[in-house]
Design a protein around this nucleic acid. Structure first.
Lengths: 178, 178
DNA sequence: CGGCGCATGTAACTTGTTACATGATTCC
DNA sequence: GGAATCATGTAACAAGTTACATGCGCCG
């Protein structure tokens, strides 16, 4: 289970030079439903990537000591290599499902409220995804550059729809057995 | 992000006494689509749980040096406490989606084959879930003990259906743009 | 008698989170 | 001038994986 932080950052930099802070923001917004990275990973990783010659940093003078990173030829090569390499099994951990599995040892009411919370969180995800989708669709895209990203959004929409519908069924079940 | 290993094990032990090895097997089979634990977590955790008085071990003499753990009153209390406590945000990491997002920098053909692999893996998950569902339904359940577990299976089925349908759409899209 | 599955355990390592420190800029 | 946000970084810690060591029992 090797770290993928490096490749996420390279992927973002392939589009345009960015600061570590900006990359974190992009990951939080665009990848929120299937990926995350913390500053504690990003900054040290950028340093090590620079040492490996995959990126070059420019110290923005004047501005608030920000470092803008750009990808190098070598970095692009690494990115392509990773894109063609096999994927690791996705890792998923949903505490709520453990609690549903063990539901008979706990309170149905509390569980129902936990599911409602889960539902709300994913309803927000769903809204964000819908907004992002509309935004992308509203921008003219003659070269079909947005299609790939729209596929990712579609994944998020479909899985979140599944989540929401499961929540409704399960809340109904829990409240029906009171 | 505190570890939940302890509670998973307590939950399993609430049903019946088990060895570490058996718990690992149950987690691998029953929780495979939303949770995992390794021996490297399980054995040290069981030791620490015994020290905390949440479980008691019985050394099965004669048999191949196995230790069977049983939950204590104190352990049951801990389990109930956790069941009523708030959940951590679920963690999900899907490398494939990063690659779809960055698809324009790589090969469409390779990506399509990666998605096919993903699809196959989840088709297997789907089959396992269906089999487990049928098994549970075939066992008479006068006290509705299986209902909670069936809800968990339902979650797996719904999300996997979403995955599979997304795979088909996305493969079609990739192969259409060749 | 050899290989596989059962069974437990540990040590080294990698990965990831959190908390903290520092300081600039912007906006009210 | 104070709060929020921008911005970078590190150190301590927690969590999780992997590889290894050990040995029994069963089946062919």
């Amino acid at each position: 289970m090797s770290s993928k932080t490096r490749f996420v950052l390279l992927g973002l930099l392939q589009e345009q030079p960015l600061t570590g802070y900006e990359m974190k923001q992009l990951i939080d917004i665009r990848f929120r439903f299937f990926w995350n990275e913390s500053f504690g990973q990003i900054y040290p990783e950028l340093k090590s990537m620079e040492e490996d010659g995959l990126v070059v940093a420019t110290d923005l003078s004047g501005a608030r000591k920000q470092k803008r990173y750009a990808i190098t030829k070598s970095g692009s090569r690494e990115l392509k290599l990773w894109l063609a390499s096999p994927n690791e099994k996705e890792s998923i951990r949903i505490e709520l499902l453990l609690k549903v599995y063990f539901a008979k040892y706990g309170s149905k009411d509390i569980l129902a409220s936990q599911i409602k919370q889960f539902k709300e969180a994913h309803h927000i995800d769903y809204s964000i995804l819908t907004a992002f989708q509309e935004e992308l669709r509203s921008i003219p895209d003659p070269e079909n550059n947005h299609q790939d990203i729209l596929r990712v959004i579609e994944f998020g929409l479909k899985t979140n729809e599944a989540y929401l519908s499961w929540c409704d069924d399960t809340i109904a079940y829990l409240e029906g057995t009171r």
